[in-house]
């Protein structure tokens, strides 16, 4: 059951990315182009997602276990450190460069977009580079 639930969540998440326009890099870049011909649509994606998400997380916070008896694993990190700021700055630069963030890129790989496949392969390489760099100096555990 928990596996099916995760599959269903992935399907609905992906459908949401498609319906909202987030899965279209041209739409994302139109949103990020405030100095040009700005398309504010994606602000409505965030508003809709947080409207429902905040209800879900408020319910989750009151539970010790999930509906399928898994431990409720909510993030505990709260420090606003160099990692979260520098990492987000890098991510934002890449996002603004091509208009892809991880979720939409995976959905577009599913629909067979060559450009998305190229982006995802590079993204996986980037993640692997990060994992290798993390292992080396010290065994600090991030998340």
């Amino acid at each position: 059951m928990p596996i099916l639930n995760a599959l269903l969540a992935g399907l609905i998440f992906g459908a949401g990315l498609l319906v909202s326009g987030m899965a279209n890099p041209a739409k994302v870049l139109g949103f990020l182009d405030i100095a040009g011909n700005w398309d504010p649509s994606l602000a409505f994606v965030m508003a809709g997602a947080i409207a429902i998400g905040s209800v879900g997380f408020a319910m989750a916070r009151r539970r010790k276990y999930s509906l399928f008896d898994a431990a409720m694993l909510l993030p505990t990190a709260s420090r606003i450190d160099r990692r979260v700021l520098a990492g987000s700055a890098m991510f934002g630069a890449g996002w603004g460069l091509a208009g892809f963030c991880p979720g939409p890129a995976l959905v577009c790989v599913g629909s067979g977009e060559f450009g998305a496949m190229l982006f995802v392969v590079a993204m996986l390489v980037g993640m692997k580079i990060f994992a290798l760099a993390e292992q080396r100096p010290s065994q600090t555990n991030g998340s």
């Binding site: 928990p2 639930n5 995760a6 269903l8 969540a9 992935g10 399907l11 609905i12 998440f13 459908a15 949401g16 990315l17 498609l18 319906v19 909202s20 326009g21 987030m22 739409k27 139109g30 011909n37 700005w38 398309d39 504010p40 649509s41 994606l42 602000a43 409505f44 994606v45 965030m46 508003a47 809709g48 997602a49 947080i50 409207a51 429902i52 998400g53 905040s54 209800v55 879900g56 997380f57 319910m59 989750a60 539970r63 276990y65 999930s66 509906l67 399928f68 898994a70 431990a71 409720m72 694993l73 909510l74």
Partner: peptide
């Protein structure tokens, strides 16, 4: 403002789906 491409309704509906999926995963799988 790019009124030709502005799509607040589909953006909002898609956002609601995304939020629902996130809620489903946290409530079901924690």
């Amino acid at each position: 403002v790019d009124l030709v491409h502005f799509s607040p309704f589909s953006a909002l509906v898609g956002g609601l789906l995304i939020g629902f999926a996130a809620a489903l995963l946290v409530l079901g799988n924690g």
